[in-house]
Amino acid sequence: MEQDSVRSLPSFRFVPSNYQVQYAGGIGVVSTGFGWDYGKNKRWATDVIVGYVPKYDSERMKLTFTLRQTYTPWAIKLNNNNLTYHPLRTGMFMSTTAGRQFWFSASDKYPSDYYTFSTKLRFNIFVGQDVEYKLPSEKSYFERVRFYYDFHTSDFNFIARVQNSSLRDRNYIGIALGTKFYIRK
């Protein structure tokens, strides 16, 4: 009886549709995560990402945790549907950095409204493109691989640039390179 009722549950699965790995992008030198694609023609994607930041010239390494929302409005099929080109992917991501040095809001030791921003929580916007390749095998664990690049900027970089025309030539926009591996369903 119990088994039957389990079988009759809707077939929603919490299993992600893809795994991913990214280089740079303001959330670590390398970051990795998983995500879900959903909506009409799978135009929407939500990703959960963990990133690693080496210490470089600072005193300690850092870990980041990111939630990214992507919108991919158009898909162009090429080469007998083995390739799909998405001329636009855009969205935003929110990332936090672990460590006591970073705070969501300034501590009570400061007068009120002393620092009105968060050093721990960054909001970023991005715009990019991707190409998806359908793997030839019919049985492999991964069915498709997607390669993307994004131009991104953070709230901090953006506000500095808007207020200063002299930052025109500075690197306030970064590039992220990534790969998403889609699980066969």
Partner: peptide, 8 residues
């Protein structure tokens, strides 16, 4: 490439 705003 920007690794992180506080990457040092």
């Amino acid at each position: 490439f920007e690794v992180h705003p506080y990457d040092g």
